Amino acid sequence: MTELTQYQQPNEVALPSIIQTAAKDMNGAMTVANGIVGTSFVPQHFRGKPEEAAAAILYGATLGFDPLTSLQQLYSIGGKPALYSRAMVAVVLSKGHRIWTVEDSPDSVTVAGQRKGSDNVEQITWTIERAKTAGYTSNKNYQRDPHAMLYARASGDVARRIAPDALLGLAYSAEELQLGEGEGTVSTQRVTADQFVKPDPAPTAETKGQDELRAAIQGDTGEAPSDAQLRKMFAVLKENGLEGRDEALGYVAETIGRPIESRNELTRQEVSKVLDSFTPAPEEN
């Protein structure tokens, strides 16, 4: 009887460690989500939705993303997570695999990939004709930038083919869902070809850590800026009358020569370039 009484006590039943860890992580993710879902650095579909944001943060952590990167790159479509193809490529590269562009023309894009330690090379080609056959050409996202969508399909297909384990079995990219595949739809910003990762075909060292992963996602191999460097940049922008987010990002984009949507896209070298733009040139003797 004593043994039965002890067995029925709920407090004495130990939860599996994986559940305990998940509960702890969820509490942490909710704390972060509540702190940022009201900011302009979070995409509109996560604004005011801390539970959705926390789930994305948890899932992104399994892929190696920090919270803000998770919210920028992950989408929930019909209850299934989806990533932009450029993010898929970044994850695969961070695991030491290779992906490179073989052909890149207005009407055809060929992307190849090689799994680390394998001699086999996977190659995928998407052409305008193939897109027509698939029924993509009537989609407004395809019509806006067909070349970018061809690259997205080719690079996403290669990434999933050579390293499905690195991507945790993701079934779709956000671009595929934009074109009408999968379950449901996703509302996203325009994706341009310049935003995609285009690695050199020559072998590169395996990237490590969040800085390299974030840089790969943004298509730049530069080192990520420190928090102190970013604080200094925004302080200087404010001192020079650029207090609004749009004004500040507009000035930064003009200075570094490429469009950006958040400070997370900047490299250390680009932040230095912005700071240098406010430094008076030395007077000539």
Results as ranks from 00 to 15, higher is better:
residue 123 Q to F: 08
residue 147 H to E: 14
residue 162 I to K: 03
residue 110 T to W: 06
residue 116 K to E: 13
residue 139 N to T: 07
residue 49 K to E: 10
residue 80 K to S: 11
residue 151 Y to D: 03
residue 71 L to R: 00
residue 61 A to V: 04
residue 106 P to N: 10
residue 132 K to T: 10
residue 64 G to M: 07
residue 81 P to G: 08
residue 70 S to A: 15
residue 138 S to K: 13
residue 148 A to V: 02
residue 114 Q to N: 10
residue 95 K to C: 09
residue 117 G to F: 06
residue 82 A to E: 00
residue 114 Q to H: 02
residue 130 R to C: 04
residue 179 L to N: 00
residue 139 N to M: 13
residue 176 E to R: 02
residue 149 M to K: 09
residue 164 P to F: 09
residue 101 T to E: 14
residue 77 I to A: 15
residue 142 Y to R: 02
residue 145 D to T: 05
residue 154 A to C: 06
residue 132 K to E: 12
residue 73 Q to G: 07
residue 140 K to Q: 11
residue 83 L to T: 00
residue 134 A to W: 09
residue 109 V to S: 02
residue 74 L to R: 05
residue 53 A to M: 00
residue 142 Y to K: 06
residue 93 L to K: 06
residue 174 A to G: 04
residue 50 P to N: 08
residue 94 S to G: 05
residue 60 G to L: 07
residue 93 L to R: 08
residue 114 Q to Y: 05
residue 78 G to M: 10
residue 116 K to V: 09
residue 110 T to D: 07
residue 150 L to S: 04
residue 122 E to C: 14
residue 151 Y to E: 10
residue 123 Q to L: 13
residue 123 Q to D: 07
residue 158 V to T: 05
residue 49 K to M: 12
residue 50 P to L: 10
residue 52 E to P: 01
residue 167 L to S: 01
residue 50 P to R: 08
residue 172 Y to V: 01
residue 49 K to H: 11
residue 100 W to E: 01
residue 129 E to H: 11
residue 113 G to N: 06
residue 181 E to T: 06
residue 177 L to P: 00
residue 160 R to Y: 04
residue 109 V to M: 11
residue 72 Q to G: 11
residue 98 R to Q: 15
residue 167 L to G: 03
residue 116 K to Y: 12
residue 101 T to Y: 12
residue 187 S to L: 13
residue 74 L to H: 05
residue 114 Q to P: 01
residue 66 D to A: 15
residue 52 E to V: 10
residue 64 G to F: 04
residue 106 P to C: 10
residue 115 R to P: 05
residue 61 A to P: 00
residue 87 A to I: 01
residue 108 S to F: 06
residue 181 E to K: 14
residue 47 R to W: 11
residue 58 L to S: 04
residue 170 L to Q: 03
residue 73 Q to I: 08
residue 118 S to H: 10
residue 133 T to Y: 13
residue 139 N to F: 08
residue 55 A to N: 11
residue 182 G to K: 05
residue 72 Q to S: 15
residue 186 V to R: 07
residue 69 T to L: 14
residue 141 N to M: 12
residue 88 M to A: 08
residue 108 S to P: 01
residue 114 Q to E: 08
residue 155 S to A: 14
residue 151 Y to T: 07
residue 125 T to N: 09
residue 67 P to W: 04
residue 114 Q to D: 04
residue 184 G to S: 09
residue 91 V to D: 01
residue 112 A to Q: 06
residue 117 G to Q: 08
residue 159 A to V: 04
residue 180 G to T: 02
residue 140 K to D: 12
residue 47 R to L: 13
residue 163 A to F: 00
residue 184 G to E: 10
residue 107 D to K: 15
residue 177 L to W: 06
residue 70 S to P: 06
residue 75 Y to T: 05
residue 184 G to T: 07
residue 58 L to K: 09
residue 50 P to F: 08
residue 109 V to R: 04
residue 152 A to D: 03
residue 53 A to D: 00
residue 110 T to K: 07
residue 183 E to K: 15
residue 63 L to Q: 03
residue 81 P to W: 14
